[in-house]
Design a protein around this nucleic acid. Structure first.
Lengths: 197, 197
DNA sequence: GAACCTCCATACGCTGGCGTATGGTCGACC
DNA sequence: GGTCGACCATACGCCAGCGTATGGAGGTTC
């Protein structure tokens, strides 16, 4: 018989965590309870381990936060952009991007939580990188719609503020948003307005 | 000689705080450091007093938060609405409202901090009240511009998300916004788009 | 099979903030 | 000018979470 890579005789046989595991858990915690929820001991409990593990992989809490944010900045934007790029029609592309982005923001509150803690240096840095990338991309989409350069950028920015504000509202006062049935129509109209010449 | 109301012989002669003083200090603290910054002992230091004073006026920290939020909900919306109502031209009224609102949001970060903590029950309640009132008012303005009822509400909501998103950006990534010179032009264009038929 | 290295467990001290208890001060009033 | 009540100071116990120290448990290597 071939040798087994990881022990699988005993079912609960010491998972052996990595720094990534901790970073992911931290991201989850941010989504649930904000940056303040990134607390070593509670996380250790959720991961079924102890602080001993954590302080092996990281110097301190701050290093964990930094790692988690870097991971977030890498993943969550490029992923969606490349997904949207598949759609050839530029108008539909905008619509697709916003549909996806808003849906994503509605399901989890990670982004909102991060915006909440923009005072923290590492968060500020991650937000800056991500925001600039996104606004630039949306501006690019608007340029593809035929808007001349400076206006494309302004419209892109406007559209991004709509997204942000929407995410905020969905999180803080969901009752203020149109109900699910009307939502698609609302979004259509909103984007029509934004893309109007 | 007339009698003096408050002692003013000694310069630093025991101010004697009220519950209002504590609530205002709490609001200031929220603006600076979020809800987490509402901490009794640090606030006591800033007010030049001790916890003894606080626990005389309030049952606990939560009661302070509630009082502060109620005060905020009362003041910050109606004040601006009645200020804007002075302007007769409806189009200019919208423009004035947004100019003021954005300026106000840019200077302080109280609103953003509150949105950040929407999970807290008292905050959620205050936000709901304030948001519904505001969206309703903006919708009213759009109705005044000639939009039929359901669309006026949708446009009002859209405009409010723009405001919110803008406030967020101004707080988290100010570098993404147009610089001061171009800002008025940007706002003009944005509102033109929002009010376009 | 012994040394070794990686990873984790446990115990400890420390800090900041909450809430309580109890006594002190100062003006108002009689 | 003593009493009373409103307001505040101080001291205390408590808890959560950070970071450190130190001692294993297991796999790896020779």
């Amino acid at each position: 018989m071939a040798m087994v890579q990881r022990q699988q005789r005993k079912p609960a046989a010491k998972p052996r965590l990595t720094a990534q595991d901790w970073a992911d858990a931290a991201l989850t915690a941010i989504g649930e309870g904000g940056l303040a929820a990134v607390a070593v001991e509670p996380l250790a409990v959720r991961l079924g381990t102890t602080k001993g593990s954590f302080y092996w992989h990281f110097a301190n809490r701050d290093a964990l936060i930094e790692a988690a944010l870097n991971r977030w900045a890498e993943l969550h934007t490029e992923e969606m952009i490349s997904e949207v790029e598949a759609e050839p029609d530029p108008r539909r592309r905008v619509r697709l991007l916003f549909g996806e982005a808003i849906a994503s923001a509605t399901s989890g509150s990670l982004e909102v939580s991060l915006l909440a803690t923009a005072a923290h240096p590492h968060v500020a840095d991650a937000l800056r990188r991500v925001t600039e990338r996104r606004v630039a991309y949306v501006a690019e989409l608007f340029a593809g719609l035929g808007f001349p350069e400076p206006e494309a950028r302004r419209r892109g920015l406007l559209a991004y503020t709509v997204y942000l504000g929407h995410a905020q509202l969905g999180h803080a006062v969901p009752s203020a948003l149109p109900v699910a049935d009307e939502f698609d129509a609302y979004l259509d109209e909103a984007l029509d307005v934004l893309m109007m010449r």
